[in-house]
Design a protein around this nucleic acid. Structure first.
Lengths: 146, 146
DNA sequence: ATATACTCTACTATGTTAATAGAGTTTATA
DNA sequence: TATAAACTCTATTAACATAGTAGAGTATAT
């Protein structure tokens, strides 16, 4: 699995919306400032996330973005897979284990499968609800540390 | 972690040498045929592996390549890290956990660390000695299955 | 001598990434 | 109803990585 800047921004964007879940809408401009992303690049990513059903938007003067689903129903794995594509270390894990004529391929397949499963096990078991709590706690800690 | 063709070929090359450990030298030509790699591309990769201390070579008429160390002393992780570089999902895992002013970064760091460790745990615990036995067994199985 | 096999450097086509640019659409509100 | 604020959509680009290809050079057994 390789996380690109695009994926990184997408994750931060969803976390930002999770932190504002239930509040007012979040504008691209405000979000870009908080997560330190180029506005026009973030635009594209938010549009993608919208197509993926992760977020919704309202246009016009008081427009902005919001999460489509409660933060506890979205995992890091959902976002990563959608934005950055397959998390397999090499494109062969899902191949069927048929005859396996190529001994050299065959031998490594189990390794890639193990890596894939170990990775999934991490990213599919963290929701943005959990992350929002951590981030909220961290923000809180910062307020008092100044 | 993302395995490139380069990395894939390198792993197969080392496995091929592991399968011939103690026998005669292996030529690029023969190896390329067995692991299904372009000869000239494989050349470069073998030269890299040599620079990395994984393999040795003999030039001239009866030249070829051989493993520098016993197959049980080389892991998949060793080769992958050397050829394809860092196995981190994103370049931040090794950053020190100092003040963590950026809450958004901070929250995801532990996830990438977990993925990194889970991945290491797989690839650093498989040696080419183990793989050679599996591949040998598979080749043997094939002989009898025809 | 010479054939065989490794060595080294340079080049290239293709694709991906990380943006940037700009015109267009929607909507609240003064 | 004009307008500012905010989302929408398509195109373009610079830089870099990947997966090779090409070719000249060096070493060595016979």
């Amino acid at each position: 699995m390789k996380i690109t800047f695009r994926g990184d921004y997408a994750l931060k964007a969803v976390l930002d919306l999770a932190l504002h879940y239930g509040d007012e809408l979040v504008t691209i401009h405000d979000m870009a400032q908080r997560i330190d992303a180029p506005v026009k690049f973030l635009e594209q990513i938010l549009l993608d996330l919208k197509k993926g059903g992760f977020i919704e938007s309202r246009r016009g003067k008081v427009g902005g973005f919001l999460l489509s689903k409660p933060p506890y129903n979205v995992t890091v794995g959902d976002v990563v897979r959608f934005i950055d594509g397959s998390i397999e270390p090499i494109a062969c894990v899902k191949d069927k284990y048929v005859s396996c004529k190529d001994v050299y391929k065959c031998v490594f397949r189990k390794i890639w499968q193990d890596v894939y499963e170990a990775t999934s096990n991490v990213i599919d078991n963290v929701t943005f609800g959990q992350l929002a709590i951590k981030a909220g706690a961290a923000e809180h800690a910062l307020e008092y540390s100044i």
